Amino acid sequence: MSDALNNGRSFRGLTVVDDSMREYLALVADTSLSGERLGRELNQIGERPAIS
């Protein structure tokens, strides 16, 4: 998702949701979300212990 603030500066949002567990795994908002940042966020999600 991307949008702009009142001053015209854009920002992007990353939302990762587990539909089966109905929980947010990540919610990140920043003025820049690079591929490196995306990979880092997804790796952090993958390193979390599984909840049963």
Results as ranks from 00 to 15, higher is better:
Met1Glu: 08
Met1Lys: 05
Met1His: 07
Met1Ala: 08
Met1Asn: 10
Met1Val: 07
Met1Arg: 04
Ser2Thr: 10
Asp3His: 06
Asp3Tyr: 02
Asp3Thr: 05
Ala4His: 11
Leu5Cys: 09
Leu5Tyr: 14
Asn6Trp: 07
Asn7Pro: 02
Asn7Gly: 04
Gly8Asp: 05
Gly8Cys: 05
Arg9Glu: 15
Arg9Trp: 03
Arg9Pro: 00
Ser10Val: 08
Phe11His: 06
Phe11Asp: 00
Phe11Ser: 01
Arg12Lys: 12
Gly13Gln: 13
Gly13Cys: 07
Leu14Tyr: 01
Leu14Trp: 00
Leu14Met: 06
Val16Asp: 01
Val16Glu: 01
Val17Leu: 11
Asp18Cys: 08
Ser20Gln: 11
Ser20Cys: 03
Met21Asn: 11
Met21Arg: 15
Met21His: 09
Arg22Asn: 10
Arg22Cys: 05
Arg22Gln: 13
Glu23Asn: 06
Tyr24Asn: 04
Leu25Met: 13
Leu25Tyr: 02
Leu25Ile: 03
Ala26Cys: 09
Ala26Ser: 10
Ala26Met: 04
Leu27Asp: 12
Leu27Asn: 13
Leu27Glu: 13
Val28Ile: 12
Val28Gln: 04
Val28Ala: 01
Ala29Gln: 12
Thr31Arg: 11
Ser32Ala: 13
Ser32Asn: 12
Gly35Tyr: 00
Gly35Phe: 01
Gly35Ala: 06
Gly35Asn: 13
Gly35Ile: 02
Gly35Pro: 02
Leu38Gln: 05
Leu38Ala: 09
Leu38Gly: 02
Leu38Glu: 01
Leu38Met: 10
Gly39Asn: 12
Gly39Cys: 06
Arg40Gln: 14
Arg40Ala: 14
Glu41Asp: 08
Leu42Asn: 03
Asn43Glu: 15
Asn43Leu: 12
Ile45Phe: 04
Ile45Ala: 08
Gly46Ser: 14
Gly46Glu: 15
Gly46His: 07
Arg48Tyr: 06
Pro49Gly: 09
Ala50Met: 12
Ala50Arg: 13
Ala50Cys: 07
Ser52Glu: 15
Ser52Lys: 13
